[in-house]
């Protein structure tokens, strides 16, 4: 691992750090600025926007407005349900299909595989008009179910693609030994193969949960009612309504940022590993 002197040149290394620190500032300063000002009174926000909240400028009035008027606990719950159920369905259905497509040989398998991963290249948004019609016909517009179905369908191709790649690497001897012991194919999938899929599931979770949580398009189009609003859509509506109430806007933004930041910090290692292992090659 130790490399020769070329890189240890202190001048060069500090120049590189300077570049990286400047970019770090560009990255985090806007976010910090918003969070910092959300804890200030209106006078503080406009009078001294670049200072930390102090005695006379500290205030929670923005948060009070958000909690008394906004329905954020409900939105938060909706987002959680949609994201987690969609992820579960994507992983379970995706694993079953990936197993059927990678484990057995039969006629039409290649075509079927191609069909199932075709969706990787086609944005599902372009089918919005058709989706709206179908959800209306099925009587489930303005429900969380509609959102869950859309997000599951959208992410299945990725799940199938990633998992069938990995399933080919699971040892045949192990599966055949299980078959001789009389385990059903379903048990082989869920007991033997799924535990090996953990890195693939991490990748799928990253590429599924972040976009679903952050999506504005489908909540806006499919489930805009108050009861089914997700955090992203709720924040959009709330901020749109309170544009002139700066402390409320800043508080709502911070409330949307902080959970994501905390989750990201907790799982950043896994998230980064998920991105780098799944997408390259």
């Amino acid at each position: 691992m130790f490399r020769t002197s070329a890189r240890q040149n202190p001048l060069r290394s500090s120049a590189l750090h300077l570049v990286l620190i400047v970019y770090t500032l560009i990255c985090v300063a806007p976010i910090l600025l918003i969070i910092m000002n959300s804890f200030k009174s209106r006078r503080g926000i406009f009078g001294a926007p670049l200072e930390f909240p102090r005695g006379e400028t500290f205030s929670l009035e923005g948060y009070e407005t958000v909690f008394t008027i906004g329905n954020f606990p409900l939105y938060f719950q909706n987002s959680l349900i949609v994201t987690i159920v969609s992820l579960l369905l994507t992983v379970v259905f995706g694993a079953m299909a990936a197993f059927a497509l990678s484990e057995y040989r039969y006629r039409g398998r290649e075509i079927l595989t191609l069909y199932m991963i075709l969706g990787l290249m086609v944005p599902i948004r372009l089918g919005t008009v058709g989706i709206l019609n179908m959800m209306a016909a099925a009587g489930i517009s303005n429900t969380l179910t509609a959102l869950i179905l859309v997000y599951t369908a959208q992410h299945l191709p990725l799940a199938i693609f990633v998992m069938s790649e990995l399933m080919r690497q699971v040892s045949d001897d192990l599966k055949n030994a299980a078959r001789i012991d009389g385990l059903s194919e379903y048990r082989i999938l869920f007991r033997l193969v799924m535990p090996v899929m953990r890195p693939a599931i991490a990748t799928i979770a990253v590429f599924t949960m972040i976009p679903i949580w952050n999506d504005l398009w489908f909540p806006l189009v499919l489930a805009p009612s108050e009861e089914t609003r997700t955090v992203t859509l709720g924040a959009q509506f709330f901020i749109g309504q309170f544009v002139t109430n700066w402390s409320a806007v800043l508080a709502a933004l911070s409330l949307a940022i902080i959970p994501m930041l905390v989750l990201y910090m907790l799982f950043s290692r896994q998230i980064i590993r998920g991105i780098t292992s799944g997408a390259v090659k």
Partner: peptide
Amino acid sequence: HIPLLLAPAAIVYTLVMIWPLVDSLRL
């Protein structure tokens, strides 16, 4: 077991993604 394993994914994907795309094209 092969069609049974494939069915949930194939049905959701076809009904909610592929069919609406084709339907939009048709519309």
